[in-house]
Amino acid sequence: SAVVMEEGSPGEVPVLVEPPGLEDVEAALGMDRRTDAYSRSSSVSSQEEKSLHAEELVGRGIPIERVVSSEGGRPSVDLSFQPSQPLSKSSSSPELQTLQDILGDPGDKADVGRLSPEVKARSQSGTLDGESAAWSASGEDSRGQPEGPLPSSSPRSPSGLRPRGYTISDSAPSRRGKRVERDALKSRATASNAEKVPGINPSFVFLQLYHSPFFGDESNKPILLPNESQSFERSVQLLDQIPSYDTHKIAVLYVGEGQSNSELAILSNEHGSYRYTEFLTGLGRLIELKDCQPDKVYLGGLDVCGEDGQFTYCWHDDIMQAVFHIATLMPTKDVDKHRCDKKRHLGNDFVSIVYNDSGEDFKLGTIKGQFNFVHVIVTPLDYECNLVSLQCRKDMEGLVDTSVAKIVSDRNLPFVARQMALHANMASQVHHSRSNPTDIYPSKWIARLRHIKRLRQRICEEAAYSNPSLPLVHPPSHSKAPAQTPAEPTPGYEVGQRKRLISSVEDFTEFV
């Protein structure tokens, strides 16, 4: 048969007729292969192709491409040299491709048809291009793949890379869960390890502090508590009631339409708007009261037996805890006409967050109470924005700035309102402590230090009264110190430094 060459192609190359033996071998191979691939376009007849790359030819070592076609129900084999250009295909004639002069020997084609199974398996396991790669995943090629499931790999992101949580363990979102698992493993320790309690022994800490320079003076030496005195035992138990972190309780009120001037209507609300609910979820963490331990979680007086509701929101960081007394989460009882059960919590909070959804101005004093010092007013606006402002009593104007209003988005509203309420509550605590000038409020841990110092002074006084020969370590507060001759004046800087060093040991009130 003659071949018409394309323009620009090399000279004529004689194409030899395939021997009958080659056709029989390739026909047997075509019957084993699956003929249901995917359909081509209507211009080209339905056909199945599979590209198999052999590394070497037997005796020649030339890479070839073998295409199996099922045109007219008769499979045909096409061998081509890759750099050459194939002729145009037609549905009426068999596929013809040019070969190099080196394939002119018909014996070479017979060798190609009689490829060993080793070469076929190696060509099938190679990388296939384009559409033949999808075909190689079918059941027909499963014989050339190794048996057994593939090893499982770690989760992959859409980009093909490992997620960040699997790369950096410290930033993994499941870090707290692993800590819980470690605690569970520790709890399952053997009885021999049960006595080993991690941490620092208080006796060891005391020993280090006792021999430090801070205890060089007799006034700073630790003293032993009497065991037989019940009054001192009660004082030590009272110390446990003062937490070592700051605590805040903040009221949250929802004002519906037409309720801006009605205290009873505001306290009777059992739910609010959708934006109000989203605002609550951002204030803190939802907790169930019956599962809380009052000595570990500050509840601000809420009952854990269901008297004040089942849930509330709280927030904490390293040095403070805040609980929100939310009116809509507290039960509304029919027998309580004046809502006294709610007001006994909300009316005693220094700061209230008022979500004013009424469309009218909310005035300070609508919720009557002796300790309502500051109101954080949240007014929802259009386009997911809110107006946040402050209202306070006249005696609080020096501590709280009420002249600045803020426009905040719904997303950042819980954070801004919480921070403003916490700052206002700190100012309210300082303002409330002014009624007792001898006990200015600095912080909870300073209050613990003052309680310890008062307890020490009482013990020293009782020891001096029981044994008059012992001198008083600290003179009583009601006694007057003996007159001392004025010492020589020293520079102001040295006096300030000495006073600062003494105050650092005794108390921190002056620095606050």
Rank of each mutant, 00 (worst) to 15 (best):
Arg456Lys: 12
Ser219Gly: 14
His478Tyr: 09
His375Asp: 15
Asn372Ser: 10
Gln429Ile: 12
Gly300Val: 04
Thr438Gly: 07
Leu449Asp: 15
Phe350Pro: 03
Pro380Lys: 00
Leu346Met: 10
Val400Lys: 03
Ser268Trp: 03
Glu278Asn: 13
Arg393Lys: 11
Leu280Tyr: 12
Gly258Met: 04
Leu470Arg: 14
Arg285Gln: 15
Asn356Tyr: 00
Lys333Arg: 12
Arg344Pro: 06
Pro243Cys: 07
Pro475Val: 10
Leu501Ile: 09
Arg285Asn: 15
Gly258Ile: 02
Ile250Ser: 01
Ser352His: 07
Gly309Gln: 11
Arg411Ser: 09
Gln259Cys: 03
Asp382Gln: 08
Gln241Met: 12
Tyr493Met: 14
Pro476Ser: 15
Pro489Phe: 11
Ser262Pro: 03
Gln497Gly: 14
Ser479Glu: 14
Glu270Val: 05
Gly492Asp: 12
Pro437Met: 05
Val351Lys: 01
Arg458Asn: 15
Leu264Ser: 11
Asn436Phe: 06
Ala421Gly: 02
Tyr355Ala: 00
Leu449Pro: 15
Arg434Ser: 09
Gln484Ile: 12
Asp295Gly: 09
His325Asp: 06
Ser262Ile: 03
Tyr254Lys: 00
Gly369Pro: 03
Glu257Leu: 09
Glu462Gly: 15
Thr438Phe: 06
Leu470Lys: 15
Pro380Gln: 00
Ala421Asp: 00
Glu278Lys: 11
Leu238His: 12
Gly258His: 13
Ile407His: 04
Cys292His: 15
Asp291Asn: 14
Ser260Phe: 04
Val400Arg: 03
Ile367Lys: 02
Ile459Ala: 08
Asp357Gln: 03
Pro468Leu: 10
Val408Leu: 03
Glu263Leu: 03
Asn227Tyr: 10
Ser260Tyr: 04
Asp439Leu: 08
Leu253Asp: 00
Leu253Tyr: 15
Lys368Ile: 06
Glu384Gln: 15
Tyr313Glu: 04
Ser389Asn: 07
Lys499Trp: 06
Thr402Leu: 07
Thr312Met: 10
Phe350His: 04
Pro331Asp: 05
Ser428Leu: 08
Tyr441Phe: 09
Asp410Thr: 01
Thr328Arg: 03
Met426Glu: 01
Asn261Cys: 07
Ile446Trp: 08
Lys394Pro: 15
His345Ile: 14
Glu307Met: 11
Ser443Leu: 14
Val252Ile: 05
Tyr254Thr: 00
His338Phe: 14
Val335Glu: 14
Gly306Val: 09
Val297Ser: 15
Lys444Trp: 10
Val304Ile: 07
Gln419Glu: 14
Ile377Cys: 06
Ser268Glu: 07
Val374Met: 06
Arg448Trp: 07
Pro380Ala: 02
Ser244Ala: 13
Tyr355Met: 00
Pro489Asn: 11
His248Cys: 15
Val297Leu: 09
Glu257Val: 07
Val252Gln: 00
Ser389Met: 12
Ala322Val: 14
Asp318Trp: 05
Ala427Arg: 03
Tyr383Met: 07
